[in-house]
Amino acid sequence: MIKNKKVKHILRKGIKEISHYVFFPKNRIGAEKIISVYWFVILIIIAGAVVAMVSLFYGSPYDVRVTEANIMINQVSNCLSQSGELNKNLFISENSEKKFNENFNLLEECNLIFETKFENAVGEYFLEAEFYDLNNERLFSISEGNSNLKTDCKIAEGEKKYKRLSKCVDREFYSLDSENQAYKINILSVVRKTEKNVK
């Protein structure tokens, strides 16, 4: 017989709890159901992340504007100068004086076409050729296309890079006229085409 009141109290409480434990046994079924739902949530998160990665990578188009600008410069340089000699149509003789031809049309002479049938095409190209002497003094310049694109080149030189800006490429080379006088020619080519090259 247990006489100690404290021990009696503890035993009574224990028996109540044990009987409760026997009739309402705790098992892991409830926990497992929650875990399986959780597992599906994890799978959905992973699937969503994979779809996001795929759309991020394959959704962005290839940007070929730099290549296009370089090809344009090559074509124009070939048209302005061949084997180190400037195109004769660049010069006119006025009063027995040799001058640069102001009416030299870059598009016609170099077989270029800047217009397209696309609806939103608002001048996708800009082309400029500048002629300098060997003391870096500018003598002459010709340009074709959308001149507003030239400002994009100055913005692009800054620290922050803006994706939707036009791509600018400028290159220089030397050439001679028929009198063996040397000129430095700087060609700037700007390609906009952001709809087809930037997401």
């Binding site: 340089s77 070939n78 000699e85």
Partner: peptide, 28 residues
Amino acid sequence: KIIDYETEERTQDIIMEESLFSYFSIKD
């Protein structure tokens, strides 16, 4: 996906060759 013209291996640089042709043609 930005195709960089400069980093691709090139076998020819027309602009550089024009300069070299004019260099060798100069008499002065």
